[in-house]
Computed example of a mutant assay.
Amino acid sequence: MTLAVVPSPWLPAVLAAGVSFVAADAWRRFALHRQLLDAPGPRRLHQQPTPRGGGIAIALVLLAAAAWLGQGVAAFFVGLVVTAGAGLVDDLRNLSALPKLLLQGLGALPLAWAWPLAPELLGTGGGFAAALLLVLVLVNFWNFMDGSNGLAASQALLVGVGLAGLTGLASPAGWLGLMLAAACLGFLPHNLPKARLFLGDVGSHALGFAVAGLSLHALSRSDAGFWPLLLLPSTMLLDAGLTLLGRLLRRQKVWQAHREHLYQRAVAHGWSHSRICAVYFAWSGLALLLACCLAPASEATQAVATLAWLVAGAALYFWAGRFWPRRENLMESVG
C-alpha cells in the first residue's frame, strides 16, 4: 500500500533535520564506545581518529520519508536498505571492493526496474541498464567525493533543494528531495567546520542512491527534464569523473584508494576543508540556479546550456589543477 497524498513539507522538514542531528549524535557516541574510528593515513585528509558511519542518520530519515514516494516506494526502500547496508557493513568491519560493488548492484536492481531511464528512447532493456549504471555511478562518485569535511553532505543538500525546486513540493520526488536536504542539514553540524563524525560509506551510499533514485522518479513522471536534473550533481560528476578518467589513462588501478581528486589536491596544497566546501557549494549553487532558469526552456536550449556548463566546469577543473598539481609522494594508492 502506498500513500497518494504528499503532506505539508515544512513541519516534516524540521523534524527530519532534528532527527538527523540527534541520531547522528547518538551514533557518534556509539562509534566512540565501539572504537569505530577512521584513523589518519596516506589517503586521508584528517589528522585525528574520527568516528565513522554517522550517515546512518540520513539513511534512516530517507527510509521513513520514502513512504510518500507513491508508486515504486518498495523499490526505493529495499534498494536503499541494501545499498546503505553495504556501506554500513564496510564501516563496521571493512568490505572488499568486489562484494561491495555486487551489493550496490543488487540495491540498484529494484530501482532500475521501477524507473528505467528514458525507455521510450533506449527501450525497456536499455532503459533498465542505463538506470542501473546511473545508480552505481552516483553511489560510487558520492563515495569517492566523501573525503573532505562537509563536502558530500552539502552537495546532496543542494541536489535535494534543486529537486524540490524543479519538481515542486507537490511532487513526491520534490517532497523527498526536501527531506534529503533537511537530513543533510541536520548532519552537517557534526561534520563542518571540524569533523566530529564522518558520513562513512553508509552515508555516502545513501546520498548517492537517493540522488539517483529521486532523479529517476522525477524523470519517470516527467516532473523535470533530463538536462536540468543533470546539472544538479554536475560538480560531483566532474571532479569524480575527470579524476577517474585521468587514472584510467595513466593505467592506474581505479578501484584503489587515492588522493587525486581536485578537492584532495587543494587540501594537500594548504586549502582548508571549509574553504573547499564553500567553493564547491558556490559552484553547485550556480548550477542549481541555472537548472531552475532552464526548466521552462526548450529541450534543445537545455541541452546546449548544460553541455556548455559541463565544458566550463571541465576547463575550470584543469585550470585549477595547474595550481594544485598531483604530488606523487602523496597520491600513491593504498590497498
Rank of each mutant, 00 (worst) to 15 (best):
M1S: 14
T2Y: 11
A4M: 13
V6F: 03
V6L: 11
W10T: 00
A13V: 00
V14G: 13
L15N: 10
V19E: 09
W27K: 02
W27Q: 09
R28Q: 07
A31M: 11
L32S: 11
H33N: 14
A39I: 15
G41V: 13
G41L: 08
L45C: 11
H46M: 06
P49E: 13
T50E: 08
R52A: 02
G53R: 02
G53V: 02
G54M: 06
I56Q: 01
A65N: 07
A66M: 08
A67V: 15
W68F: 15
L69T: 05
G70Y: 09
G72K: 04
A75K: 01
F77W: 14
L80M: 10
G85S: 08
G85I: 03
A86V: 03
A86W: 01
L88V: 07
V89E: 05
D91H: 05
L92C: 12
A97C: 09
P99R: 04
L101E: 13
L101I: 07
Q104P: 09
Q104H: 14
L106I: 15
G107N: 02
P110I: 07
P110G: 09
W113Y: 12
A114R: 08
P116A: 07
P116M: 08
P119F: 14
E120L: 14
E120K: 14
L122A: 12
G126K: 09
G126C: 08
F128H: 06
F128D: 01
A130H: 04
L132W: 12
L133I: 12
L134T: 13
W142R: 11
G147E: 04
L151D: 03
S154P: 10
L157H: 07
L158V: 07
V159D: 08
V161S: 04
L163H: 10
G165I: 03
G165N: 10
G168H: 11
A170G: 14
P172E: 02
P172S: 10
G174C: 04
W175E: 01
W175M: 04
L176P: 00
L178W: 04
M179P: 00
L180D: 11
A181L: 06
L185Y: 05
G186F: 02
F187G: 07
P189Q: 10
P189Y: 09
L192Q: 04
K194A: 14
F198E: 02
G200H: 01
L207C: 02
F209Q: 06
G213F: 06
L214W: 01
S215R: 12
H217K: 15
S220R: 08
R221W: 01
S222P: 00
G225P: 05
L229F: 02
L232P: 00
P233L: 02
L238K: 00
G241D: 13
R250F: 04
K253N: 15
V254I: 15
H258V: 03
R259T: 15
R265N: 01
G270R: 00
W271R: 05
R275N: 03
R275I: 13
I276W: 00
I276L: 11
C277T: 15
L286H: 05
A287P: 06
L290M: 13
L290K: 09
A295K: 14
P296C: 12
A300E: 12
Q302L: 08
A303Q: 12
V311M: 13
G313A: 05
G313T: 05
A314M: 13
L316I: 08
A320Y: 07
R322A: 09
W324G: 07
W324S: 03
W324T: 10
R326E: 15
N329Y: 10
